[in-house]
Nucleic acid binder design. Structure first.
Length: 405
DNA sequence: AGTCCACAGGAAGGGCAGGCGA
DNA sequence: TCGCCTGCCCTTCCTGTGGACT
């Protein structure tokens, strides 16, 4: 066993420090976010005078640097606070993971409670007791605490936001400020108006990066991540251009660069080239599809399977034709049949996920319908065939073959 | 110009599971 | 532990729609 790893472990031809290409890495400089950094810094600056900073909402699509900027400012704020001997605290919470009122309050409280015995347990306490514990913990700091709620739209219910926005009413010696981060621009529309006005005192919008800006970002990271001269000239511009095509997503650009280099490294090559970027693009797309298909509910998988079978048998598969195949598959699998209305929604969901492409067309006298195509049909077919919860594709013998062909 | 098809997609509400507070 | 609330999945019912056909 030792020998296997000895071969693989031997040092990389390409990487010097791969970690800087991971999304979790917070760099020392954030190119093309100077304006947002300055704005956020000036909003939070009162914290260093012991005053209450305004609450902020940060919007922007994935990979536009929202989290990086927030963490960056948090780090700087705490450091500056230490220097000036003003107590400033920074709590970061990812609401995709910590998504209930109890867990959010528990996490913030435990940030300040160092001894294990007095920490708030995962479950068991009434929420108001956790809230009181949190108030006491923050009060003891006698300083300003900045709480970042990343992916705040993933929180279940807006009661947490309401309670957090009222923290300052219950505090005497300490102050808090909330930074909400979301990629959903419409998020606040559905909030309780009290929460909306309290939390949205300041708003920051992070625009997508352009291809040139992504080039700079990748260039900065590449200097630390790679050995000298291993990237062919056009690799970074290509990664940047591909990511900018989607929606200026820096995370995607970094992923592309990292995976391209990993592929080159695994192939034992000396240089990362355009060919590796193309392979990486393909791999990332297939990984995404695999992950989505694997986690689909059984009914949606059956709809997808019907789409695969249908498109294999004929071009221009319509909703009605898909539904006929779907019903047969349900009977084969011994699963209850959903209504066409529901199946139409499942088709829309698959369309939104980019697994299928459903185009609305009109056939005039013969009605209006959606024409369905499957993206990467071979990969999806392979994934569905491996799925034990589904009937085997070869078992499907349509009674309606004549109708379909 | 009017008809008609095969749906799309909105609205309302039922059933169920899970979370929460008393 | 129990009742209430909420979110999710789903059904039923309904109106709307683009364009080929008459």
């Amino acid at each position: 066993m030792k020998d296997i790893f000895d071969g693989i472990r031997s040092s990389s031809n390409i990487f010097k420090n791969k970690e800087v290409l991971r999304p979790s890495y917070v760099p020392d400089t954030l190119p093309h976010r100077e304006k947002q950094i300055n704005e956020l810094a000036s909003i939070l600056a009162p914290a260093l005078r012991g005053e209450t900073p305004s609450n902020v909402f940060i919007y922007g699509k994935t990979g536009t640097g929202k989290t990086a900027v927030a963490k960056f400012i948090g780090k700087q704020l705490v450091a500056k606070g230490k220097e000036l001997q003003v107590n400033t605290n920074f709590v970061y919470i990812n609401c995709e993971i910590v998504d209930t009122q109890y867990r959010v309050l528990q996490n913030i409280a435990n940030h300040f409670i160092k001894s294990w015995e007095s920490r708030v347990p995962f479950t068991g306490w009434p929420t108001d007791e956790v809230y009181n514990k949190l108030i006491n913990a923050i009060e003891k700091t006698k300083g300003v605490t900045v709480i970042v709620l990343d992916e705040v739209d993933k929180l279940k219910g807006d009661e947490v936001l309401y309670n957090l926005s009222r923290l300052n009413y219950d505090l005497e010696k300490a102050r808090t400020s909330i930074i909400g981060i979301s990629n959903d621009l419409k998020f606040t529309e559905f909030l309780d108006p009290r929460v909306k006005s309290s939390l949205g005192e300041e708003n920051l919008v992070f625009p997508p990066y352009s291809a040139d800006e992504l080039c700079d970002i990748l260039g900065e990271r590449a200097k630390i991540a790679f050995k000298e001269g291993v990237l062919e000239e056009n690799v970074i511009p290509l990664c940047a251009a591909l990511a900018a095509q989607e929606h200026g997503d820096a995370r995607r650009a970094l992923d592309l660069l990292r995976v391209s280099a990993e592929i080159a490294d695994r192939l034992g090559e000396e240089k990362v080239t355009e060919k590796h970027v193309r392979l990486a693009e393909n791999k990332i797309e297939l990984d995404r599809v695999t992950e989505i298909v694997r986690t689909l509910p059984i009914q949606t998988k059956l709809v997808l399977m019907a789409a695969v079978i249908g498109t294999e048998r004929q071009d221009n598969l319509t909703t009605g034709e898909l539904y006929i195949i779907y019903k047969d598959l349900c009977k084969l699998a011994g699963i209850n049949v959903l209504t066409q209305r529901r199946v139409a929604d499942l088709i829309s969901e698959l369309d939104m996920l980019g697994i299928i492409n459903a185009r609305l067309i009109s056939k005039g006298r013969y009605g209006r319908t959606r024409e369905i195509e499957v993206s990467c049909p071979y990969k999806i077919k392979e994934l569905l065939e491996k799925d034990d919860s589904l009937p085997k594709l070869r078992e499907y013998k349509p009674k309606l073959q004549s109708k379909l062909l």
